[in-house]
């Protein structure tokens, strides 16, 4: 700071003209921008620390001894990392954690794969196949977007229970496959797909089915990845539908297991946090590795939603 303060004075003393004054003005402005930049980054880093705080709490509590968690003096980090807390989850008698994780993984993978398949096919038909009643089908799909999915959980539960699918994998996965919103997003995407590619495939003698699988899908993988990741995250973290459907503990997803421990508080704090850590770790990894597609998916789905 002192040099920039001194500079104009020195220049003025030398009695130089407007060019020097302008240069001094320029320097002063640059100092101000620099100061603003420092303040900006202080704010940004402080906010980042606040955003990471809950993750720190999960890790700290999950790897502490019970005494460290309940100590009146805040312990910043556990004296020794208690990895045993995690092992305890899987070996402890009556622990639901392993079942929950397995159920969540199966449900999330099937739901993501199934939804991508069914909804992308429908979206392609709506975007590209000339058919008399296509508009009617499209409006029937758009109409379902007006009703938020969560409000329909009672009707859908009534349906699923009369099919006898309560507490089953089918009940968890199948009703969630037919997302009007995902089909809509695929339609919008395929409307902008370059027609020349499809025309070339036609010339080569491929029908609709062949064109779709050999040309359209291989050229749309990035979009599939973006939508797939958003679906996977939503499915892994879903709570209301599994709570309604998975009534037997055999069908519990990891979120239901955590919620049961949490609301009943039947488990030691450090184990509860270790369980939370295990449940959130796969998604944090997914976020770190596929950031780009997820950001694309969010801006794509968020804006059009």
């Amino acid at each position: 700071m002192s040099t920039s303060d001194a500079n104009p004075a020195r220049r003025a003393a030398r009695g130089t003209g407007t060019a020097a004054q302008r240069s001094a003005e320029h320097r002063r402005r640059r100092t101000r921008t620099l100061a603003a930049g420092v303040v900006l980054y202080i704010v940004l880093v402080a906010v980042a620390a606040v955003f990471l705080l809950p993750y720190y709490l999960i890790a700290r509590n999950g790897l502490s001894t019970p005494a460290e968690i309940t100590s009146p003096e805040w312990t910043l980090f556990p004296a020794a990392l208690q990895w045993g807390n995690i092992a305890e989850l899987f070996t402890g008698a009556g622990s639901q954690m392993a079942t929950g994780l397995r159920n969540s993984a199966v449900v999330a993978v099937l739901q993501t794969g199934g939804q991508l398949l069914v909804c992308s096919l429908a979206g392609y038909a709506l975007a590209r196949i000339p058919y008399r009643h296509a508009d009617a089908v499209f409006y029937a799909i758009v109409a379902t977007l007006m009703i938020p999915a969560a409000v329909t959980f009672v009707p859908t539960f009534v349906m699923v229970s009369s099919l006898g699918w309560v507490s089953s994998l089918r009940g968890l996965v199948v009703p969630m496959l037919f997302s009007g919103f995902t089909a809509f997003l695929f339609r919008q995407f395929f409307l902008n797909f370059p027609r020349e590619l499809e025309d070339a495939a036609r010339v080569d003698g491929l029908g609709y089915w062949g064109t779709y699988w050999r040309v359209v899908v291989p050229n749309s993988l990035q979009f599939f990845a973006a939508i797939g990741l958003i679906t996977f995250i939503g499915s892994w973290n879903a709570f209301l539908w599994p709570l309604v459907i998975a009534q037997d503990s055999q069908a519990w997803t990891v979120q239901i297991v955590l919620s049961t421990y949490l609301t009943a508080q039947t488990i030691e704090l450090q184990e509860l946090f270790a369980a939370a850590m295990v449940s959130v770790a796969p998604l944090v990894l997914v976020f770190l590795f596929f950031q780009r597609y997820i950001v694309q998916g969010v801006t794509e789905t968020g804006i059009k939603g």
Binding site: P54, I58, L272, V280, F287, V298
Partner: peptide, 28 residues
Amino acid sequence: SVYFLPAACSYVVAALIWKLSIFNGVRF
């Protein structure tokens, strides 16, 4: 990425942190 990372967390896990660690109402 840092600001977006909370979106990886489920409401259940967030509820667990808020209820039992940040706002648990006891001294620790």
